[in-house]
């Protein structure tokens, strides 16, 4: 019980702060809480398949397979796969981090994990269609064409910045995630 309380401390503090806000400014507070409740509903709709898929991936796909397709020396194949998996995903960016942890456990190359994160954040296929509808195809296509090299560039710069020890530590940490 004490452990649970400690883990959810941040959430409880923010929740109490928002209830106080509601007491001060009723309209703003209820609006904020209403939107939060809505997002929780959305989360419950989108998140379960993401986590079940990552559970299945963790159990069924052997490490050797993942290393072969997306690990060190996987080259263009690894980059394309990272892009494809990230773009086919659904849900907000923070859903991508637990998946990244499983990728680390399975020995996926760090730069490919970063490409996957980049793709999940901006080149999601359903979002692209939505963007075309809202802001026009010129805007959406131009942004997509700029984003693809951008994501790769960011992934490579970042994997150069990180030392081997730092990446190893991160991978070690991912092993202890469950």
């Amino acid at each position: 019980m004490k452990k649970i309380l400690k883990r959810y401390r941040g959430f409880l503090i923010v929740l109490i702060a928002m209830l106080l806000l509601t007491a001060i400014n009723y309209d703003l507070g209820t609006k904020a809480l209403g939107i939060s409740l809505n997002s929780i509903g959305e989360m419950l709709l989108i998140i379960p398949p993401v986590f079940i898929l990552l559970g299945l991936l963790d159990i069924w796909v052997p490490r050797e397979t993942m290393v072969r397709y997306m690990g060190e020396g996987s080259g263009l194949k690894g980059i394309l796969l990272a892009f494809f998996i990230g773009s086919a995903a659904a849900g907000p960016l923070y859903g991508a981090f637990p998946v990244a942890a499983v990728f680390m456990k399975k020995g996926v190359k760090f730069s490919n994990i970063l490409i996957f994160i980049g793709a999940w954040s901006t080149t999601k296929i359903p979002m692209f269609l939505f963007e075309m509808g809202s802001l026009g195809s010129r805007f959406a296509i131009a942004r997509l064409l700029i984003d693809i090299p951008g994501i790769i560039l960011i992934a490579y710069i970042l994997s150069k910045i990180m030392s081997r020890e730092e990446v190893e530590k991160m991978y070690e940490n991912a092993k202890n995630m469950d």
């Binding site: 959810y8 941040g10 904020a32 939107i35 989360m43």
Partner: peptide, 16 residues
């Protein structure tokens, strides 16, 4: 726990 904090903050932000 982190998800829940994010969701509350997003709610506040969208309300503002």
């Amino acid at each position: 726990p982190e998800f829940l904090v994010v969701i509350l903050l997003v709610g506040l932000m969208l309300a503002l």
